[in-house]
Amino acid sequence: MARDIVAGIFCCTGTFFFILGTTGLLRMPDLFTRLHPSTKCDTLGACSVIVGMAVHNGWSWDLLKLVFIACFLLLSSATCGHAIGRSALRRHIPYWKKKEVKEDGHGA
């Protein structure tokens, strides 16, 4: 029972971070600020859900699989964020500035 509650709390936290990340992806003004919330989806969101499932499952072989999934998710997500950010930086994609938005009203 207590295990179910703890697992539920972890899964709800993960879902919350997913919602947060998606909202950020839609609402943020430019690539760099969008990259920031969207990487949170994978790290905090998915890992919380995985921790919740691990708590729900207890000690079993599935735990090992979940740990592997979490490891690969963290590695690949971090690499993706790095690649996108680095590529955007090297290509001189313009940053968002507050003034520009106020002038033309639509943003760059």
């Binding site: 590695l75 690949s76 690499t79 790095h82 690649a83 680095r86 590529s87 090297r90 290509r91």
Partner: peptide, 10 residues
């Protein structure tokens, strides 16, 4: 932009 060492290693 040539791919970075991190991406290659990963």
């Amino acid at each position: 932009v040539p791919s970075s060492t991190i991406v290659r290693t990963m």
